[in-house]
Design a protein around this nucleic acid. Structure first.
Ligand SMILES: [Mn+2]
Ligand SMILES: [Mn+2]
Ligand SMILES: [Zn+2]
Ligand SMILES: [Zn+2]
Lengths: 139, 139
DNA sequence: CAATAAATTAGAATTCTTCTAAACAAGAAA
DNA sequence: TTTCTTGTTTAGAAGAATTCTAATTTATTG
């Protein structure tokens, strides 16, 4: 890991009003240093253990939620068994591979959603989420 | 409840290779006799209690899954805290009201999804799910 | 009627997630 | 620096949704 990278991550945290603690910085590094990630709490915890970062699962959950509240992450609901967090906070859609539980972004402009019918009375759109569920071709 | 309605439900169950037990028939009635429903296991259990149907929560779960496997229901993932089951098994999209947890169908043809990019290698589409998340207008 | 297989159930177990409350660390003030 | 305040981390308990187990009951078949 490069020094300037750590400085950038520290700024990212400070800008979000989050103190750059040892654990937080380590998580930020795991999450944001290597392209776009889609990850569960348990998986992130394993990643941290592998990277020899001492951090409890409670702290993983705390930080995933704090990062989400700060707009650094986005929570994705695709699977009833556990929550995913996406480091891509821009509007986008998703492929979800049913066998592996893998997610892949679809750039917003690569897919068109049209003709949304009138919304229920007294509501406004919060987001339009498209999930293209794919399955391994049999044979 | 009309007699012919019960006969229809019994046939529906038999056609799905499911024995029309007292509990199953009662659930089928709660689920399919009154238009389109979007319901959680706990909610269905409450409904059953209110209707004086003696049935355990385990049986609710067993049957929701059996109905789903038989194509009589469809499971919907919109909320990380619990699973919803939809009595509408035709292709459709959904409005999800974030405050109330309420779902509302969007007829398939009322909304257009176009330009789905190339699928990940070795996969085929299983479904394209659009969830329009709406929120009560503030003020 | 048996006999067989399917279904139901109470309660225990599992899994994911959140909470509690005490210890600890970071930043601000002195 | 040291002190103070507040934010953060943590182990373990608690909670909630769901599944499992194993015994009992019910439906269907012969
Ligand atoms: Mn991306
Ligand atoms: Mn759960
Ligand atoms: Zn993504
Ligand atoms: Zn529906």
């Amino acid at each position: 890991m490069v020094q300037s990278e750590l400085v950038d991550l520290e700024k990212k945290l400070r800008d979000a009003q989050l103190r750059p603690t040892k654990q937080r910085l380590a998580l930020a590094q795991l999450l944001f240093s290597d392209g776009n990630r889609h990850i569960t709490a348990e998986r992130l915890h394993s990643d941290a253990m592998e990277a020899n970062v001492a951090i409890s699962l409670a702290t993983i959950y705390n930080n995933l939620h704090q990062f989400t509240a700060a707009g650094l992450l986005r929570e994705v609901v695709v699977d009833s068994s556990s929550s995913y967090f996406d480091t891509n906070i821009a509007p986008r859609h998703l492929f979800f591979h049913e066998q592996s539980g893998t997610l892949k972004d679809i750039a917003k402009d690569d897919l068109k959603v049209d003709n949304i019918p009138p919304l229920p009375e007294g509501t406004e759109i919060s987001s339009v989420d498209v999930i293209v569920r794919v399955s391994s071709t049999r044979r």
